[in-house]
């Protein structure tokens, strides 16, 4: 008889099958206490398995404010450059990569110990990002080498990367019925269009202040709106 579970971690004593008696929770629950317990458990779960949009928006907001801000300062047509353009672009890319890590970490934490359809969906969605950006980089590098001028190359990179990222967030919002993610996608698409319309040094300013500022405002909104997380232990 495989009666106790074999995966039980160390220290599970053989008295496992003891009657539930006293540990079933001490005394009968009143309906109000029961409802309160449901609420507090949901809050606990949200903190331990849930996805918190505030840090996701905040990390994107910071990446854009600083990254695109430096690009604006360093751009040929812009104000005096505190650093070369390539360095500004490198800072931007590094900050954006860091911002992409935040939802991944949250997703991994939420998916720990889970098997089933949602895990497959998550893996396919993750692969989407890699495939999309690989294709995008190949297309853009080829076009740029084909003789596109510097300004157009800049607009091509910012416009296309933000569009692809925006569409992927829209898809993520649809997959997980997550309005925050969908909203982020819409914001990225709007920023992509506004940036390209603004033209070269101005596009960086639009992305830094309007784009980054908007993302930080959203982060603040979600930080304030998020429930305190149920009862304390």
């Amino acid at each position: 008889m495989s009666d106790d579970d074999p995966t039980a971690p160390r220290g599970s004593d053989p008295a496992a099958a003891a009657p539930a008696g006293p540990d079933s929770g001490g005394g009968p629950l009143s309906p109000a206490a029961s409802l309160a317990l449901i609420e507090s458990e949901r809050g606990r779960l949200l903190r331990r398995r849930g996805v918190n949009p505030a840090p996701i928006f905040a990390s994107w907001g910071i990446a854009w404010l600083i990254g695109f801000g430096l690009c604006y300062l360093a751009a040929p047509g812009g104000p005096s450059a505190p650093l070369p353009m390539w360095a500004a672009a490198a800072v931007l890319v590094a900050l954006c990569l860091a911002a992409m890590v935040v939802p991944v970490v949250q997703g991994v934490r939420a998916g720990r110990g889970v098997r089933g359809p949602s895990r497959t969906t998550g893996a396919m969605y993750g692969a989407c990002w890699a495939l999309a950006f690989l294709a995008l980089a190949t297309v853009n590098l080829t076009l740029a080498r084909g003789g596109l001028d510097a300004d157009l190359t800049t607009l091509l990179w910012t416009g296309s990367s933000l569009t692809v990222a925006g569409v992927l967030y829209l898809a993520g919002g649809m997959l997980w019925q997550d309005r925050a993610q969908y909203l982020l996608g819409v914001w990225l698409l709007a920023s992509a269009v506004a940036g390209v319309l603004a033209g070269v040094p101005g596009n960086f300013l639009v992305l830094s202040l309007a784009g980054g500022g908007g993302l930080l405002a959203l982060a603040l909104y979600y930080a304030l709106r998020r429930p305190a997380g149920g009862a304390r232990p």
């Binding site: 579970d5 995966t7 039980a8 971690p9 110990g113 889970v114 098997r115 089933g116 359809p117 895990r119």
Partner: peptide, 8 residues
């Protein structure tokens, strides 16, 4: 359709 491991 999702399942959770016992230890988790």
């Amino acid at each position: 359709g999702d399942r959770l491991t016992f230890p988790r």
